[in-house]
Design a protein around this nucleic acid. Structure first.
Lengths: 134, 134
DNA sequence: TTAAATGCAAAAAATTTGCAGACGT
DNA sequence: ACGTCTGCAAATTTTTTGCATTTAA
């Protein structure tokens, strides 16, 4: 992604320097926790407050500009909202990566097994990443 | 499940009344949050401490007697550890239900798309449950 | 009998809130 | 100019810890 200012405005978010920096960091790093975002952005904004990160992550999530990813045994990480996909987390380095995966097919399959109406699915894989194997 | 005392001991956990009650509640209700467990068990143990729930959930999770289930937009719930399965959460009533689903096939499929070694998968469906539709 | 569990209180960690001043539009 | 955002401090919520007493085995 690029042009964070326009993207933020499209999501009804004023484009403050802190917010464009959050967007930039998430775009660059892929997935970051609240604490990681804070540590990163403190370098650019010496007076940055943790409360600002929380307030922004909350409103950005509510406005679908970012998405929370809940990982087993770990703190949540956040990413820029993208097309539906799944995640992989390395149990060695804890890095989170995107994995393309057709969730629609899974949803259709699971729908056959329940009386409920399934609308979405969240899938997280765990294992050992390429780098950590070597 | 039944015979919680033996099950607890099999997981290197002393069978205290509080622990058998936790096991019993999880068995009955399926999925409970820390707070829900506390509110439930307080009725049987007037002096029960929240710290006891936390300590027990933590050690029970570490010893694989219970498993944490992370649900999008909600607090974690806990369940007795069972054979691998997936979950469904109703966005109306927030109830969590088990869904049988062959995760191995998904893992094999996803493995083709990554250099990483996938060892496990966590899948959570969201939608509207049977009761809430009517 | 002994190591471990409970309950309480206190501490620590995580998240939210209120408000004055600054800033985006 | 207006409404929103930021940063700070304080408040709240969530989770952990230490310790004296009790309890399971």
């Amino acid at each position: 992604m690029d042009n964070y200012i326009e993207q933020l405005r499209n999501h009804n978010l004023k484009a403050t320097p802190q917010r464009t920096a959050i967007a930039h960091s998430l775009d660059n790093h892929g997935h970051l926790s609240v604490e990681q975002l804070y540590e990163l952005l403190k370098q650019s904004f010496s007076t940055l407050s943790l409360a600002t990160i929380y307030k922004n992550i909350n409103i950005m999530t509510k406005n679908s500009f970012v998405s929370e990813v809940k990982i087993p045994e770990q703190k949540s990480v956040y990413e820029l909202t993208k097309a539906k996909h799944s995640h992989f987390v390395c149990r060695n380095c804890n890095e989170v990566h995107d994995i393309a995966f057709d969730l629609d097919e899974i949803i259709q399959n699971a729908s056959k097994k329940t009386e409920s109406t399934i609308e979405s699915a969240h899938l997280v894989f765990s294992g050992v990443c390429h780098q950590c194997k070597s």
